[in-house]
Amino acid sequence: MTDNIQVTIVGSSNVDITALMNRLPGPGETVLADSYQLSPGGKGANQALAAQLAGARTEFIGAVGEDSHAKIALGQLEEAGVKLDRVSTSRQPTGVAIIQVDSGAENSIAVVSGANSTVTAEVVNAAGTLHGIVVLQGEIPASGIKTAMDLATDKVVLNLAPVIELDRDYLLKANPLVVNEHEAALILQQLDGSETMSTEAEPVIAEKLMAHGLASLVITLGANGCLVVEQGTEMQQLSAVKVKALDTTGAGDAFTGAVAARLAHGDTLAQAADFAGKFAALTVQAHGAQASYPRSLDAL
């Protein structure tokens, strides 16, 4: 039974441990923090929540540990109705991001992949058929990404963040590839086999990526909106919604999840990206990642 799943996210889930302090410690120094908080994160889980809240029946496939953090990592997804039946339990601990934030919003982050490192080809293959549009990121092993692409029967949305080494043939299976400007330049460097990263303007990088044979591409540009291009069509630059941003954590994941949701509903890529930009704009007006995602689409 597929439960009419429209979007399947294969990816990472974390617990973010955030310590708030006046200043960041130097090497070997101890600084007393003012407070800390535990919150769900991980690019895969963030995107799954966004896709569900953006109106698509969504499944998340990943891994958590046999620990108390697992419930935190999956809590908001469960609450929103994301299907979690095929999340595996690993002997590795649930992934954790250890974040220090000072009074000026400067931060330092250490990520422990934990159970996310077990989402390999074997685990993804054991999950079986992947339903609907499949969304992938760079926070699980490359073997898991490639197997998910092989099992996909619909479009594959690839948000290769962070940028990891991926075979050319698999990079070109993305439809669309959704990345920011820095990630786009790194992926072009991979495809070109170059020793240096391009510093050319984003439209030029987009044209060069498409020349390698990508079916479609979205490059997010923060406050400058995004570039959208498909084979055989002219490039479009979509404007961003002008808002006062308080916290951009998880905004890119919100965008990617919303793009997948709208593609599942039959939108064109430009229509999906336009919707996703408005969806992501709502998230930056509140603190946190998943906690900032809109529970109602009335404001869109």
Rank of each mutant, 00 (worst) to 15 (best):
E207I: 02
I9R: 11
G104N: 13
L227D: 07
T199H: 14
Y170T: 06
A185D: 00
V134S: 02
A264Y: 09
E230I: 01
E139L: 01
G28Q: 07
L191N: 03
P27H: 12
A291H: 04
G222N: 01
E29I: 03
V7K: 11
Q285F: 03
S39C: 05
T120I: 02
A152W: 01
S13D: 08
A121L: 05
A19Y: 14
T30H: 01
A261T: 00
D169T: 15
L172A: 14
T256R: 01
A280V: 09
L32Y: 11
L130V: 00
N125K: 15
A121F: 07
V82P: 02
G62I: 02
E234R: 14
G128D: 12
R168C: 05
V204E: 13
T118E: 03
G11D: 09
D267F: 08
S90Y: 05
R57K: 15
A286Y: 13
T94W: 02
N159H: 05
M149H: 03
A161T: 10
D154Q: 15
E207P: 00
V228C: 09
T94A: 05
S143A: 09
I109N: 09
N22Y: 09
E181V: 10
V229T: 13
L246P: 07
A270Q: 11
T268M: 10
L49D: 03
G42R: 06
A105C: 01
S13I: 14
V64R: 07
A276H: 02
A80T: 03
T248C: 11
H212F: 15
